[in-house]
């Protein structure tokens, strides 16, 4: 089977490597230590919400774009696909997203 190298592919579900993360919050800011890379990251309320959203269960890219605004309690116009995609990219870049093929 050929799969397209595209995170939008609906066969690809994305979750979070929760075992790689150690977190500590000060107010709205969360410090995240990534055990895999040895790097410390600083998350805000939005990036942390995405981590929690994907920790619930793995989701496809389309589901993430569709359901994340409701998870945040805002409508899609306030949380457009571009923002979600960029956020997804940031989390993937630092190695916290796990690909779970359905």
């Amino acid at each position: 089977m050929t799969v397209s190298a595209n995170p939008n592919n609906d066969h690809w579900l994305w979750g979070v490597y929760t075992n790689h993360m150690v977190t500590h919050s000060f107010g709205d800011t969360t410090f995240v230590y990534n055990r895999q890379s040895g790097t410390t990251h600083i998350f805000n309320l939005v990036s942390m919400a995405m981590i929690e959203f994907l920790s619930e269960k793995p989701r496809s890219m389309n589901e993430i774009i569709r359901d994340f605004p409701a998870y945040m309690g805002v409508d899609a116009a306030e949380c457009p696909a571009g923002v979600v995609r960029r956020l997804f990219g940031e989390l993937d870049e630092i190695g916290l997203l796990e690909l779970v093929q359905s």
């Binding site: 790097t39 410390t40 990251h41 600083i42 998350f43 805000n44 939005v46 990036s47 995405m50 945040m72 805002v74 306030e78 949380c79 457009p80 571009g82 923002v83 960029r86 956020l87 940031e90 989390l91 630092i94």
Partner: peptide, 13 residues
């Protein structure tokens, strides 16, 4: 989210 829409990163390293 508005900052995110303007391209401000949501994760700092």
């Amino acid at each position: 989210l508005r900052l995110g829409a303007a391209g401000v990163p949501m994760v700092l390293t």
